[in-house]
Each structure stands twice: as C-alpha cells, then as structure tokens.
C-alpha cells in the first residue's frame, strides 16, 4: 500500500516539477488528438448535414451503421490503417506507418462515426419551423442549411468534443500505427501501457492524472456548451 502512495507522490512531483518527458508526451498527445478531431470534424459535419438534410432510401440503416461504429474497436481501426499504410498497402508509398501522421489518420477514422452520429442528433434537435422560417424570410437552400447548422452549433461543438474524448483516450491505434517510439510517436496512453509493464508506475500515474484532468476539463466544457 505504501508503495502505491509513494508512487502517487512521486507522480505528483513529476507533474509539479514539469518533468520534460511528461510535458513532451502530453503536448504530443494533445497535438495528435486535436489534429485528428479537427480532420474528423471537417469530414463528419458536412457528411452529417448531407445525411440529415437529404431524404434517401436506407437512411435509417445508415444511422444504425453509424451508431454501431461508435463502439468500433480501436484495434480494428489500427489493423485496417496498418494494412492501408504498411509498405505493401495501397497507401504504402506515403510512408505513414510509425509516424504521428499515421496516428492522426487512424484516430480520424476512429472518431468520424461518433462526430457524424452526434451531429445528426444535434441537427435533428433544431425545430422544423426554423427551416420554414429561414425559407420564408428569403434564404436560399444553402443559407437555410447554414442557418440550421448555426442553430445547432452548440450541439455540433458537443459532438466534436465527444470525438476528442474518444481520440485522446484510445490506445489501440496509437500503439499499432504509432509504434510507441520514444520522442516521436509516444503518447500518454501508450506510455502508460509500456511504463506500467516496465514497473515505472510513477510515470504512469502522473500521465494517468493528466489524462483524467484533460477528460475532466473536456467534460466541463461539454457541460457548459450543452447548457447553452
């Protein structure tokens, strides 16, 4: 028990003393997850609008597939992206394997369904009358779509934040695509997994506290946003 308490205090010390390795890993994690969330949002929100604003056959099935993909196993995405970007894969010549770029690609794919799904739910939350009001006031179809998206902006932001939460906490893609290379692709989750196995518990705890703090901050922001 005293070992755990000891390790905990050492972890706090690592954070308070701004240990260069802790800082470096945290910044890299933030960079990769924020980038993948950004690209995912760029793809997912227009896709969500396309699905929401158009009537087509099988819309319900599409929604079901998207919702199933919320729980897409991270290792499966890892495997898929690995096959895509490994030397013999179709995107092999981009040399993305074991690079932060490859990790961003993987996390983007992982996060897209979550952002699409929750964006659609957000858009559905806008009253049908808003559409008619916009049209009646002379808006074009495109202006009507942007008006509705503006009405749903906090819900859309919520969907993006949720995507970020999924990206930052996942370990499968980061490990399989990043390869956990020290000083290059090592992120919070992969470091924790490795260092714990090595018995370097204090670094794991320190990173765990940071990850939890990020999650807490994200949740606080999400709550603020949803209250609007």
């Amino acid at each position: 028990m005293s070992e755990i308490i000891n390790a905990f205090f050492q972890a706090i010390n690592l954070i308070v003393s701004l240990d260069p390795e802790v800082i470096e890993i945290t910044l890299r994690t933030m960079f990769i997850s924020l980038s993948s969330t950004f690209f995912a949002a760029l793809i997912a929100i227009p896709l969500a609008s396309l699905i929401h604003f158009n009537k087509f056959r099988g819309k319900r099935s599409v929604m079901n597939v998207i919702q199933t993909l919320y729980s897409l196993p991270t290792v499966l995405v890892g495997l898929l992206v690995f096959l895509l970007i490994s030397k013999s894969g179709p995107l092999g010549n981009l040399s993305l394997l074991f690079t932060p770029g490859g990790m961003i690609l993987g996390q983007t794919i992982l996060v897209i369904p979550t952002v699409i799904g929750f964006s659609i739910i957000g858009l559905r939350g806008v009253k049908e009358e808003i559409k008619e009001l916009a049209l009646s006031l002379g808006a074009s179809n495109l202006q009507t779509v942007t008006t509705i998206m503006g009405e749903a902006k906090y819900a859309l932001l919520g969907a993006i934040i949720l995507g970020f939460g999924r990206a930052i906490s996942e370990v499968g893609v980061a490990l399989m695509i990043g390869g956990n290379i020290r000083g290059y692709t090592r992120v919070i989750t992969t470091t924790m997994s490795l260092e714990t196995q090595k018995g370097n518990v204090e670094l794991s705890i320190a990173l765990g506290i940071i990850l939890l703090s990020i999650a807490l901050i994200v949740n606080l922001i999400l709550n603020q946003v949803q209250e609007r």
């Binding site: 009253k127 009358e129 808003i130 008619e132 009001l133 049209l135 009646s136 006031l137 002379g138 808006a139 074009s140 179809n141 008006t147 503006g150 009405e151």
Partner: peptide, 18 residues
Amino acid sequence: MDIRRRIGMVFQKPIVFK
C-alpha cells in the same frame, strides 16, 4: 426563393433564431 423574397409571412406561432 425569388418569389419568397418579395413575400413576407408572419407565422401564427412565431419562433426566433438563436
């Protein structure tokens, strides 16, 4: 749209944009 821009309608249950 061209016609609607010349017509204004006030609905019975008015709503507002955010």
